[in-house]
Amino acid sequence: MTEASGTAAVTGARERFAPPTRFAVPGRIGVGRQEASVWRTATLTGIRRETPRVSTFRFAVPGWTGHLPGQHLMLRLTAGDGYVAQRHYSIASAPDDSGHIELTLDHVEGGEVSGWFHTVARPGDRVEVRGPLSGFFAWPADRPALLVGAGSGVVPLWSMVRHHRSRDMRMPLRLLVSARSPRDLVFAREMRAETTPVFTRSAPAGVTVGRMTADHLAPFMEKQPPAGWEAYVCGSNSFVEHASRLLVAAGQPVERIRIERFG
């Protein structure tokens, strides 16, 4: 299968390489390199309980350069002997100029970082953050968005909803979110007509219990905005594998599905 020699197509021209493939999901926004390289001190100013296992942590971050809904940051804790633990967290708050950001953390059983937050942290404590990171999952409010999440995977999606509300946007935005039960539904108090919850273990009387299915997606796929949806899917790997397959089967183009996996 050797091709004729001497056909080297690249001339050294500095055109950005675009792979000749079928599925390519275009990137969105480039990310400032400076933001990614600086560790900043974040001071905890408040803790708010969301569900029995999930709380929101509010921080003052002097010098925070702002973010887009959907972006995440890297957070690190340092022990007395210099040992560090670092994890990624999505930014839950909408972009604003308050000088504060919020993170919403699930309490993972035996979790090194989330365990510290849920059992030790109190206002006045200082941690370090760098970011915002990754423009791929960001929603710059330029296209109608269909948001699909489960568990703490709702966090970056909720930043999008908050942004949409704070700017009073007309752009279509819908959230389909899966939780174990009504009391495990993060941000439930703030949810309105844009949100459709799916409950996997227990639900209010009259609501079916079970994992997300094609039937849950059907109403959104039937009533699409004229140029279709940009889909954002976030949660555990098993959830996003399941939900992204449902989306593809329902006709959502693969190059318009953006995925954030929490690992």
Binding site: T41, L77, T78, A79, G80, D81, G82, Y83, V84, A85, E112, W116, V120, A121, D125, R126, V127, E128
Partner: peptide, 13 residues
């Protein structure tokens, strides 16, 4: 070094 109050972390390996 910015030590985090009350953070010890997992046993060092």
């Amino acid at each position: 070094m910015n030590i985090t109050r009350g953070f010890t972390g997992r046993p060092r390996v």
